[in-house]
Structure formats: C-alpha cells, structure tokens
Design a protein around this nucleic acid. Structure first.
Lengths: 341, 341
DNA sequence: CTGTTAGCGCTTTCAT
DNA sequence: ATGAAAGCGCTAACAG
C-alpha cells in the first residue's frame, strides 16, 4: 500500500507537506505542490479514509434506512437521496427494515459501529424511538422522511397527508360514492394515523357518516388481502362500500388482486384509489387512481436537510417540510354501480 | 467517545484484554470476560471500525454499482444483493451510473478511497475496463452481474440471453409473426450484443430472413422512442414488422408509449414483448409479455460469489453462473393483423 | 512555507 | 491467561 511516507520520500518533502497538498492547504508553495502532485500521480497514491476518519471523526458515509427498496415509492425516494448525497460528496449505505422495528434497530446498531455521519430514515414505527436514542446519544444526526417516530425531535420531510386524503375522498365523493372504506396501515406508523384522522375529517366535511366497519387495519407489506376485502364486500348492501381507499400502493394493488379473486370488477363493481404510485416507469398501462407523492423530492430534500445538520449549517430547532401530492385519476375509479342504474 | 481504555480502566484490566473479549479470543478466563462485558455494557461501548480497519485493511463494506435503481429489474437485483450482504455481515454502498462509463469511473474512484472490500457491478459498457483495472491493481475483487465488460476476467452472474431471446422469438413466431423487429440497447453493452446475436440465430432457426432494417440500436434509458418506432411502422407493408422485441423493460414500455402516440394499438396492430418485467409488484394489471429474468437471484448469487472472493474462499479461475428466465405471456402479444383477416 | 512530535483507537507481537 | 510496547496511516499543534 502506498502511504504519504512513500509520496514524501519520492517528492523529497515531509509527510506533513504531502498531507497539506492532499487537503489543499493554501500555505504550500506552487513549486512544492507540483512536485508532490507528480509523486502522487506516479505512485498512484490514494489517501486512506480509515486513517483520516480516525482523526477527524467523520466518515462521509450516510445511511438511508427504509422499509423496502422494492416498493417503487421508496425506490424513487432512494434515488433522490443518493443523488443529493453524491452531489455533496457523501456515500450512501442502504438498509431495508422490512417494516420491522427489530431489523431496523439491528441495522442502526451496525451503523453506529460503522461510524456513519448521519441517517435518513423512514421509521418502521414508533418502536424506532429506542434505537434512535442511541444515535442521539452518540451525536449522529438523523432526519425522518415520509414518516416520523413519536418521541424524536428532529428534522422531517413528510407528505401532506391531511390534504392528500381530503382530495382523494373528494374525488370519490364527486363521482357519487357515499360509502368509502379505508384499508389502512398499522396505527403504529405515523402516516397510517394521519391518514385515518384525515379520512374522518374528510367524511365529515363531505357530510358523510363515519362507519368504523369500513376502516380496516393491515400491514403495508401484507400481500394477501382476500379476507379483509371479503369482509368489506360481504356487508349488507346498504352498508357495503362502493369505493376503497388504500393507504399505500402495495395495499392498493393487493386490494385489486383480492377483488379480482372475489370476482368483482374494478371500477364497475367497486372503485379503488391509493396513496403512492405503484408504477415505476412513466405511464404506459396505468390503472390505479393514485395520490402520487413526490418521492424523489422527499429523498432529495431529506438528504439535503441531513447534510445541513451534519455540517452544522442548520438552526437548532427541528424543521418540518411538507410536500403536496398529485392526484392522478386513472381507470380504477368511476361512478358507483347504483348511480349507473 | 468511549474507547477500550475506558472499558479497561472500569474493568481493571489492560486494553489488550478488552480487545480480546471483543474479538472472542478463547484465551480469556470466564471471570475476566464477564467483568469486561459488564463494563462494556455499562459504558455503552462500541468498537471503532475505523481504527480496526486501519490495522486489518478490511472494512466490511461492499458496493453495488448499477445503471439505475429506478429500474425495477435493478431494484430487485439490489434487494437480493443487500439481503446476502447483510447475512454475511457486510454493508452495502449504493451507486447509480446512469449507464455512463464516466460516472461509473468516478464512483469507482470514490470506492477506492473508501476502502470497500469488494464491488458488485453491472458495468455501463466495455469502457468500464479501465476503471476496473484500478480495482484489480489495488486488490479489490469485483463481480459482474447481468452484464460484463470485455477485458476483465472475473466472476459473473448473467442471464441466459441466447436461450431467452430464442424463446421470445419462438413465442412470437408461434403466434404467426414473420417479421419481427429488435429495438436493442447500445452494442457497447454485452447484453445488447448477445441479444442481437441470439436474435439472428433464432430467426435462422425459425427459417425467417434477417432484415437489418428491423434492428435498431438505442439506449436502455432512452424514453422518447417515437422516431425509432415511426421508422419501423412506416416501412412498406411487406417489410413492416408485426412484432417488436425490446431489449429491456424501459425500451418495451416506451415502445408501447410511442406506438400509442402513433395511434397504433397493441397487440391489435402490432405485438410487443421485452426483456425484464417492468412490474415491480406482483401482478394486478400486467400488460407486457416479458422474459422475466431472476433479478433477485442475480443480486443474491452475485453478492455470494463476491463474498467468497473477498474471503478467499473461491478457486482462482473466474466462475460463470448463468440463470434462466421465465417467459410470461400477457396481453401485449397476439397474432399479427394479417392472420386475423 | 515546511518539518517534528505526538496520538487518534485499535491490534500485533512478544513477554510474563 | 494477561500485559507492555509499537505502530497501522494520517493530521493537529506547535516550532522554526
């Protein structure tokens, strides 16, 4: 391995001078600098980050911890985070928590020993707070994206769940739907709580009653929704929902699969809309009506805020950035069957 | 920061003893071990990886360099790679090359100074070889996934392009197609070359002539394919293709978009099939007929081979693993218009 | 502008 | 089974 000593010897200077050249110290004569740079090139010298980090306590490593990179929403978010990280000279360590607070905690433990400079996180739930305390204790800043964990005061970039939910409900009501079901994520996750609260408010605003039987809680990654959906569609005709709002793209897609298994046509028999676009590639055969959250921007902005924290360029008080969604109306929503009689 | 010295003092032993406990050295008395472990827990001590790496020359960091995480094929591949890495105690550094050899080279430069133990790579093209030489020179092993760069003898996990192309062509021919176009990726990328060669062989096997006008080279990330597609569909009726084979999911999807813009219906007017499924989530409204490559397995197996290299548990000779695809017939392919008259 | 000294946190080596 | 000394590659702090 080539070290500064090798370079120093070749350039006939002290190791410290080499260090100064690497770090672009201004107090180096042009002549010496050129001499050292030549030696560096000749020897193909690359500074050892481990040694530097040992002194500086900074690694230029950041981590992004998300539930699952396979979900197109998080894929886009990841791409945004990576782009910003690279721009600022940080490298991105990727971790999937699979919506498990345990796996997330394990991962954070790993990060602690890797010495990451910061963590961008879509927490698996409020149970994340314990692991996050360890980060705080070690002075590793973190920022929430998409979701937050209760009990941690830190920067966050989140979607406007109230507004978005309201607009989705508005869309369905404007089509003529009066009984709308919500298939939600676990209430341990902030976005599920916010979406439920906004759902109730939206129903009230539309002067529709709230029927607890039309709200079902499942997991954001649950793929078999047949039982849940059957429960909804086998309600008495006057209680049965004519539209289903799914709290994320996974639930949306799997709701449609379940409806198909139950021989119900979307949107003829029942309408479906969801949060987050399941389509990864600009549309060619899109089906689901969705509230498309700006996932790329969430990742990008979240990383930007994290970098500001790491570089102590942010005010002490936690900041909140709220991003709006686009409602994209596609084929999965239409007027309810009754209004078409 | 808590160091082994702090732990040593608290446990009334020497730092070396603490080091032995951390590293599970067998030559430690049960009693001492317990004492040290208690001190570690009390002080919330976490070993500093930078210091360890400085001595061991290993970082337990691996990198995955792919063209674009946004492509569902690479998303799945990434998930496979991450799962295997975590299993083996490695952390994954993610890099997007955007199909640019320059960006890839820059990224590899970064990796070199980060001291990654190995790199899993879907090279942007044959131009990658130069950057890869630097890895070789520094003794950093790398493994190819999905694609290879000419001029580097290393392990690889690739798809069976010959067989897959043959089966896709077979499918189209069996529907009655006689004139099939290939919209391919750049010939600087191995999979594009292999798919073209296999395409020619398949046509020959099916006793169809090869028409160079029906092969068009574009980029795997090009999103506006209108000109290219127009060029194909405005050929004289007897020369016009009745089916288009797209060399990846992006090209497939954008071919369909372009056809739509040209007011051509798929599959009524023209059939389309492609490599790699553009669907990220188990089917709910799939349209494109595809050759689904086992992306997750590619990532997983590739990472496994890389780990074997890093840990010197592999034979010297480069290994090649070839994985087969599934042909999934969906709605975008049907009999050609002529046969339906 | 350049060099010397010391030490970051840990482990290797050699003693005991 | 345990410890003392030296040093991994680099830079902060000081000296000149």
């Amino acid at each position: 391995m080539v070290t500064i000593y090798d370079v120093a010897k070749k350039a006939n200077v002290s190791p410290m001078t080499v260090s100064r050249v690497i770090n672009r110290s201004p107090s180096i004569s042009e002549k010496t600098r050129l001499k050292v740079e030549a030696a560096i090139r000749e020897l193909d010298y690359i500074p050892n980050k481990q040694a530097r980090s040992l002194i500086s306590k900074a690694t230029r490593l950041v981590s992004l911890v998300i539930p699952d990179i396979s979900n197109p929403f998080f894929t886009r978010l990841t791409r945004g985070a990576e782009d910003k990280a690279l721009e600022a000279g940080y490298q991105l360590l990727l971790g999937n928590s699979d919506e498990s607070a345990d796996k997330e905690a394990q991962y954070i433990e790993l990060l602690l020993s890797s010495g990451v400079d910061g963590v961008l996180l879509a927490p698996a739930g409020d149970g994340s707070a314990a692991a996050l305390n360890k980060l705080t204790k070690r002075g590793v800043p973190f920022v929430f994206v998409d979701r937050i964990a209760e009990g941690a005061a830190c920067d966050r970039v989140i979607g406007d769940n109230a507004d978005t939910t309201g607009r989705l409900v508005r869309h369905l009501v404007s089509l003529g739907h009066r009984r709308i079901a919500l298939v939600n994520g676990p209430s341990s996750i902030s976005i599920a709580r916010e979406r439920l609260a906004a759902f109730r408010e939206a129903l009230q605003r539309e002067e529709l009653g709230f029927d607890p039987a039309l709200v079902i809680e499942t997991h954001f990654k649950q793929d078999n929704l047949e039982d849940i959906v059957r429960q909804l569609v086998t309600l008495a005709p006057e209680a049965r929902p004519t539209a289903i709002l799914a709290a994320n793209n996974f639930i949306g897609v799997n709701t449609i699969r379940a409806l198909r298994q139950l021989d119900l046509a979307v949107p003829e028999d029942i309408s479906v809309a969801c949060f987050d676009d399941p389509e990864p590639i600009p549309e060619y055969n899109p089906f689901l009506t969705v509230a498309a959250q700006p996932a790329y921007e969430m990742g990008y902005k979240g990383m930007q805020m994290l970098i500001e924290r790491m570089e102590r360029a942010a005010p002490d008080a936690p900041r909140t950035v709220v991003l709006a969604s686009d409602i994209i109306v596609r084929r999965s929503t239409a007027a309810p069957p009754s209004s078409r009689l």
